[in-house]
Design a protein around this nucleic acid. Sequence first.
DNA 1: CTATGTGCAAAATCTTTGCTTGAAA
DNA 2: TTTCAAGCAAAGATTTTGCACATAG
Lengths: 172, 172
Amino acid sequence: MKIGAACRRKLAPLAIHQLLLDNNSYPMLSTSEFQSLCRKHDLAATHQRRVIYDTVMSMHGHPSPELIYDKVKKKIPSISLATVYKNVRTFLESGMLREVSMHHGSLRVEPNEHAHHHLVCVRCKQITDLDPEHLAPVRIKQRPRGFTVTRIAVDVMGVCAACAGKPDAKQF
Amino acid sequence: MKIGAACRRKLAPLAIHQLLLDNNSYPMLSTSEFQSLCRKHDLAATHQRRVIYDTVMSMHGHPSPELIYDKVKKKIPSISLATVYKNVRTFLESGMLREVSMHHGSLRVEPNEHAHHHLVCVRCKQITDLDPEHLAPVRIKQRPRGFTVTRIAVDVMGVCAACAGKPDAKQF
DNA sequence: CTATGTGCAAAATCTTTGCTTGAAA
DNA sequence: TTTCAAGCAAAGATTTTGCACATAG
């Protein structure tokens, strides 16, 4: 079987369940705390948003919108996948949540065989190679148990010169 | 305008052109060199493969399959996008090319607000949080010109314990 | 020869969008 | 009572697949 999107989709729920780390104990927000959090980000505090946010924050791993939808649906059976997508994006844009990787949109090939790292612009998604010289060498102090390390990739994220000039774009 | 897939698709070709680094001078392979490279990876050395590989290796930046297709089409007008996709995947699986990010398949939300890094299994794509303690602090020795750094993300890539037990899966 | 790759079209996945109804401020 | 969000369906973007024909080994 090929490891494609279809396969990944089936693996993800199982795999995430296997090795979870309990380093993300989220203190559930009260209604008024959630309301002021939303006000701070200029968002209406709807029931759906509350449940989506709570669900994500209480999940281990790094859930996809589909996985979030599956969990939220148990609390709000009438919710639609589009609402989950819309709100996840809204949360990302407002800074209430973060994305694991800035470049998930489409496959990107790396022709550069030399050891190097990346400069990633969070606005235009531009990926630029970063000379290893610019970075102090990354060292693993304690080897993760059972994990065979083959490579270390560093993404230095921020805003590139071109985007810094355009103040209209949202920062996320 | 929202920064969605459609927007990114339009930006990418322009953006990649702007800030290219000339650190990837690829010495074009001879026909026989390409043939032995393919033999080493158990692949037939077709004309299409040769052109796709040469094109990717001579491209700056981190091209998407679409961008590769556009360039290859100028040399082989009859080529199909599916062939480019098939061969890019074949090259990734054989190790002849690499992927920029292991998790571009679908959006993944990061609920963990604390500074931390990731352990990524290159086989099952599993992302596990890595305690900062396990890594020596990442430092930037020389600030990239014009780039405002907001965050550094480290991916420690390799094979997780669960996947190491299954010798059938390809390593890529 | 025969095993594998190509090209085309269709399907599968993932994500966004337009619009009407509903809820929040 | 006005503005923003939810739900639904449809479209868009990205990637894979099935199959007939072509090419490499």
